[in-house]
Nucleic acid binder design. Structure first.
Lengths: 211, 211
DNA sequence: ACCTGAACACCGTTCAAGT
DNA sequence: ACCTGAACACCGTTCAAGT
């Protein structure tokens, strides 16, 4: 039987080295200048010809996706840790803090997720995995009676990106401003907030998120 | 004394007609396909040569700004109306509804505001004007005891864009989902929510917003 | 004055020639 | 196998030639 192309045989040593150099250079360039940096500049920084980029990554978009996938793996890992360490509302809040802090520092990720290529299959799979962990965080907090019962993991995810969007315009002048909006938004997730307003509609599911 | 270039002598009839056609075509293209549409396509749709675009607007960016300015004027006008019609919290909520509804339907505006050219002087002036009206809305609601006292007009503005960011990923599958996030976020602005959490730092000012 | 399309610079992507 | 840079298509912008 055939393996899907995901797990092909390893690259030659020099190719593997170039691949790593390109990913590192791309991560740095995107973080500093956004995803508009030219492929030529990334290649220059990595010390390879710009043709090599397209030998390893079929498209610039795919190069970005690859980096975003790495970041999401880190988020999944820390979410699992905080679930084990301090379940309940504190774990949910810790996860939101983690995501917001990461995205504020490196706007490229935020751009990417909000942008066109949400339909990338790998990105969708990874997001489903992340939402699975967030769902555990949410249920744990709800069982502890520390999170209102009419919100879902997708709600928490979307509100987290909302905090990023709110704080981004301020982060040049006031880098710590995001705490303010995280507190504000997180406050609306506490059980007490539910008495103020019944939410319209049903909590969204992961399927609705993926187009 | 000289007039600033803002108010120059009127254009020739055909030039004025082309200008309008270009603005209309651009608005439609941006709404349908985002700000990535080519200038050539806008020109085609307007029925002019693509060179004409740059005769009227020094740059594509400036063409976008011009359209955003129009949208902001509309927002300012409706904000003034709802302030007169129904002051208090309802006016604040109505303003947020108005902005979110507009931006969800036409993502181009949202992209633009979040993007690089926040430092455009005309855009900054218009935003200051808008924030002035929002400030009146906020104070009116606070006097009525319907809005917590530790939030500013800039807070309300940023939280509004936050709601747009939250709802955008869902709006393909569930166009009305934004009501959910507006309710959630607006709930955190009520005086009762203040007892749950004291906000860190000071409410941001308009200056902090403009880089 | 204004319009137009050829021309330019830049960028993502391809591929023939090299190791 | 892999790397490279010349070549291509596309896009924003300029400008000389036309009305």
């Amino acid at each position: 039987v055939e393996r899907p192309s995901a797990e092909a045989r390893p690259l030659r040593a020099d190719a593997e080295r170039n691949r790593r150099a390109l990913l590192d250079a791309a991560r740095a360039c995107f973080a500093e200048q956004g995803t508009d940096v030219s492929v030529a500049e990334i290649a220059r920084r990595a010390g390879v010809g710009h043709g090599t980029v397209f030998r390893r990554f079929p498209t610039k978009e795919r190069l970005i996706v690859e980096i975003v996938l790495d970041r999401m793996d880190e988020l999944i890992a820390t979410a699992r840790e905080s679930l084990a360490a301090s379940p309940g509302f504190e774990a949910v809040l810790g996860f939101m803090r983690d995501v917001v802090g990461t995205q504020i520092q490196d706007r490229a990720l935020a751009e990417a997720v909000g942008s066109s290529f949400r339909e990338d299959p790998d990105l969708q799979d990874k997001q489903a995995e992340l939402l699975g962990v967030v769902d555990e965080l949410v249920r744990s907090a709800q069982r502890a009676g520390e999170l209102r019962r009419d919100v879902s993991a997708v709600d928490v995810h979307l509100l987290t990106t909302a905090v990023v969007a709110a704080a981004t315009p301020l982060c040049a002048a006031t880098p710590d401003a995001w705490h303010r909006y995280l507190d504000l938004v997180a406050g609306s997730l506490r059980p007490g907030a539910a008495t103020h307003a019944k939410l319209p509609g049903q909590p969204p599911t992961a399927e609705q998120l993926q187009h």
